[in-house]
Amino acid sequence: MMNFDYVRPASVADAIAEASEKGATYLASGTNLLDLMKGGVSRPSRLVDVTRLPGLDRIEHLADGGLRIGALVRNADLAHDADFARNYPAIAEALLSGASAQLRNAATVGGNLMQRTRCAYFYDAGSACNRRWPGAGCDALKGENRLHAVLGWSEGCIATHPSDFCVPLVGLDAVVEIEGKGGRRELPLEALHRLPGETPERETALERGDLIVALRLPTEAKNFAGHSRYIKVRERTSYAFAVVSAAAALRIEDGKIREARLALGGVAAKPWRARGAEQVLAGAAPDAAVYREAARAALADAKPSGDNAFKIELAQRIVVRALTLAAAGTPDRIPALPGSPFSSVAGA
């Protein structure tokens, strides 16, 4: 690990000032950053420790019925907050399906949003990677890429975003509150992560010095509490990144889907909101045929970036499964194996 200056500012303003210099980066719990630093992928010259910043570790119920989650709230605390799990069950399930209990105890909400790809070529210092080294090329493109992106990728980068948490969040229109040199601003979470295009190295919409201070869920996000699921296919039962995942949230009234939210994980460089599928579902009766149509719509623009055509088929099936399970109703308690297909019934 390269040596670095360590600073622990007392206020958000000081933090922004400290982090506005080239080479500086924020340190929250460090569960991803330290991993990247140990791997030589990230070599910051200054760490700005934000873990003690006051006021960022609260979950606040807003007057308008929304929820504001401080950036320093720990993943485990959020998932185990009884109100939160009741109102936003798919998010809680996604949180608990990610990483391990130890990592969830440490990882923060803000840090999780900034989690970087697990693409092996990104991690492998000997490989060409446009994210690490703009213009270097992408060794994943003709490499071992069975788990890479099928949506929104470019010749410059076919990496996927690894987060589980972000998948239901984009589905539920989460908003990110950012403090920066220019003051406070907001961004839909969907706009935080960028698709690679010509500039894969620009992973998010944040500018130097920008600090995520909170995540906000709008009032409507609660409306889906009765019909929400997060389903994640993995290569082992737990403690593994998603091959493909889906968050489905439905508002069902009078036997009709009034409103649907659908997002996919593991398919693109960002958590993927499937608006086309949502349109298919809106107003329809909740049945298998419409789920399949929605699944086709969700993956309509998908194309393999390598040896991964199966992910397009798998993603469609997981969409159908997530919708089926969501329609069947949110379970009373988060299942023993959160996100696992084996926690629920099979068959669509």
Partner: peptide, 22 residues
Amino acid sequence: DKRSGRILNANLAEYHVPVNAD
């Protein structure tokens, strides 16, 4: 990687050994 001969999952996150739940 068939070109470089480097192992791409030389770690315990992606070299999957069974976890308790398996």
